[in-house]
Design a protein around this nucleic acid. Structure first.
Length: 450
DNA sequence: AATATTTACAACCGCGCGCAA
DNA sequence: GTTGCGCGCGGTTGTAAATAT
């Protein structure tokens, strides 16, 4: 045996393959049949023992992979639909290269399949449309950002993610470290006061949060590589100079009630005035906006975490007056000011995903009913995306991803992005860690923006 | 028709995590 | 606390088919 063979046999092979000479490479139909027959009859049990019991000259790991990626009976075969691609793009914007989590939202698809599709197809499509597949932002913006970052790196140690970090801080309604800063006028413009020293104490912590939550292994080594678009979907108002007084009512338990007296139209008009492309969408559908949203308790905050938030009525309905949120801890009525250069709405990622979706008759009907601008309906479409309605994804074979608006009086927030993301996070960490708490705070705050 | 290149997909590999001994 | 094992994940490589030259 020459050195090359020795190395190939002993170094490049998984430990389970050391002892015997095992087959590698493509599976033959006979091998497939053996494995399929065995697992069909006995289940896989311990994978390391499967090949022996099934009469295969393969390692258990290889058998497992073959089963999961190819032989499993519940696999959906065939090309990815446009809807599936859209889902992948949106989920990738949030989750990064967490293929298994993305695959979990696409029944019948494997992480490997999705990963391959991304690397071979979607990446290319996005680039052709001028979108950076890593950041989900326009390529020009990304390139400019890199240049700017290079120029300012030495002078300003404020990471690019600061915008999003500030946003999430705003959304959490109180400082991550309460004692660090009393003033919380959130200013997410780069290089402005909002990223000043009072926030720096938390910057690393928050950065870690994002890197932990969203970063991918190859992109998480620097703050600059944390994709700003990771927050797409979290903050549909990112582009706005958002001074919400949306009259959202909520109390500490489980139910969010939107105050019908509140003015969403003001926000919408403000929103409309700040956006340009026709594919950009209004943040809310009034049909959704005026209806209660039930939130699972796991999403809501214990009142002692945020005593300034709301009160509980006898029905367990949380009265959460957005306008009365104090972001400086004083309890006085003040708005949460979000100013951002993070051009969520200038990013083409979402519009790309929606570009193929025609306007339905249902849409027009709703628009006429509500006498709202077209963008409102588009937003309701968006809210109906799997990103917001995780359950929709699970059942995506029966419902168009960007399907019709369902004007129910309420919907379960378990399927909303906030709780969905929380669930995702809880899968990855202990629920008691600080980041989960922050995310919980965010989840509550996100309900506000719905 | 032959060869080179690209594409799409399958499979491998290393690493890290959880768990039990 | 350490070690070994099984498993799952994500990055990378290998390969066959398709396409271009």
């Amino acid at each position: 045996m020459d050195l090359k063979s020795f190395v190939a046999l002993h170094m490049g092979r998984h430990s389970c393959c050391y002892k015997q000479k095992l087959r590698k490479g493509l599976w033959s139909p006979e091998e497939d049949e053996k494995l399929l027959n065995y697992i069909t009859k006995h289940g896989h049990g311990c994978w390391s023992s499967v090949p022996k019991l099934a009469g295969l000259q393969r390692c258990g790991k290889s058998c497992r992979l073959r089963w999961i990626n190819y032989l499993r009976p519940d696999l959906k075969r065939g090309a990815f639909s446009q809807q599936e691609e859209n889902v992948i793009i949106e989920l990738h914007a949030v989750l990064g290269n967490r293929w298994s989590q993305i695959a979990a939202q696409l029944p019948g698809r494997t992480d490997n399949e999705i990963k391959n599709l991304w690397n071979s197809c979607i990446k290319k499509k996005l680039r052709q449309r001028g979108i950076d597949p890593n950041t989900h932002r326009p390529l020009s913006e990304v390139e400019n950002g890199k240049e700017k970052q290079q120029l300012t790196a030495d002078n300003e140690k404020v990471p690019i993610v600061s915008n999003e970090l500030n946003l999430i801080e705003a959304a959490t309604l109180k400082p991550l470290a309460v004692s660090s800063s009393g003033s919380k006028i959130i200013n997410t413009n780069n290089n402005k006061e909002g990223s000043g020293s009072s926030n720096l104490a938390n910057t690393q912590q928050k950065q870690d949060f994002f890197l932990d939550r969203f970063g991918t292994s190859h992109e998480s080594t620097t703050a600059a590589s944390c994709r700003p678009s990771d927050l797409m979907g979290y903050f549909p108002f990112q582009k706005l100079d958002y001074k919400p007084n949306i009259g959202l009512s909520m109390n500490p338990n489980t139910t969010l009630c939107f105050n019908p007296n509140s003015s969403s139209s003001a926000m919408i008009s403000e929103f409309n005035s700040s956006m340009t492309p026709p594919t950009i969408l209004s943040p809310v559908s009034s049909s959704v906006f005026q209806t209660p949203i039930r939130v699972k308790p796991s999403v809501s905050l214990p009142s002692d975490h945020n005593p300034s938030v709301g009160s509980c009525d006898v029905n367990g309905v949380q009265n959460w007056e957005a306008s009365s949120f104090s972001n400086n801890g004083s309890g006085s009525s003040s708005s949460i000011e979000l100013q951002s250069n993070s051009n969520f709405f200038e990013s083409n990622a979402f519009s790309w995903g929606l570009a193929d979706c025609g306007r339905s008759g249902e849409e027009a009907h709703l628009r006429s009913l509500e006498n709202e601008p077209a963008e409102d309906i588009k937003w309701s479409e968006y809210l109906n995306t799997p990103f917001f309605l995780g359950n929709t994804v699970q059942n995506q074979t029966s419902q168009h991803v960007y399907g019709e608006v369902k004007p129910e009086t309420h919907f379960i927030a378990e399927g909303s992005s906030a709780s969905w993301l929380l669930n995702q996070h809880q899968q990855a960490s202990q629920p008691t860690d600080i980041y989960t708490k922050d995310l919980q705070r965010f989840a509550v705050a996100f309900g506000q923006s719905l």
